[in-house]
Design a protein around this nucleic acid. Structure first.
Lengths: 129, 129
DNA sequence: CCAGTACCTTACTTCAAGGTGCGTACTCTC
DNA sequence: GAGAGTACGCACCTTGAAGTAAGGTACTGG
């Protein structure tokens, strides 16, 4: 059924450093990967991929997130240069979050992955084969 | 700089259920997403995207993983129908792991993401605008 | 006969991710 | 004048994911 040969399965665009095989333990890419594949990170990026939104809107989209986690996740993504925060000093506080160019680039790759997970989720969980 | 309008930023293939905005809290896709975006899950899938490999090989590629985590991760991915396990009853035990069709499909989407993370990692960590 | 390899399993422990709840400063509505 | 909405910050506490350590088997090589 499946190939068992150690031949690259596809002409994938693996960077050279990865094609070596090992994924270095202490390297920055591990950290970045942890940020963008974190439980809430994915959902926030996904939500923002549909356009800039404010705090309360994001809370609703990422169903189940706590205020603490929302704040923390947004801060991490902001530090990573993936989202922009725009606070207006108006009477009821209003803050808008949106993707940076880099963040947008990322969601281009992230969205198909989530879409795939969404479509295959039922089949996977109801464990057949 | 960035759009702040709530208009979909790209003609992305968001499934209808996601375009609604909210990502249901208890739905299976959350679970699947957690599996494939888990710390070690990504690395194992990535390693296997280059072809079937055995236990000890995987240990080396996913630098820093413990035997316990390797076993656990592989078991989860197997249950999810993403990897196949082939044990040969030979004298020194030999077990080969490879991707299923579904797993292969997934890595097609996963590899570009990891590659992106790898390329942008330095810029992101050295935090500039 | 002791060491080593390959592939795990189980038990104990740690640590950080995440949850809960409270406070704030102001305004708008009932 | 009581309550609710907005966008947080802070502190405590729980839980589960992951690390550590050890054991087990079925051999082979020195």
């Amino acid at each position: 059924m499946e190939v068992s040969t150690p031949v690259p399965a596809h002409g994938g665009p693996l960077p050279a450093a990865l094609a070596d095989g090992v994924f270095p333990a202490g390297c920055p890419s591990r950290t970045v990967l942890d940020h963008i594949t974190s439980k809430w990170g994915v959902l926030i990026l996904l939500a923002l991929s549909e356009g800039g939104q404010r705090w309360s809107e994001l809370r609703r989209r990422a169903e189940g997130i706590s205020e603490k986690m929302l704040a923390q996740t947004l801060k991490t993504l902001e530090r990573d240069g993936l989202v922009t925060r725009k606070a207006q000093p108006v009477i009821p506080p209003r803050v808008d979050y949106s993707l940076t160019n880099r963040g947008y680039e990322l969601t281009t790759l992230l969205v198909p992955l989530v879409a795939w997970a969404f479509e295959n989720a039922d089949d996977i969980i109801n464990g057949q084969r």
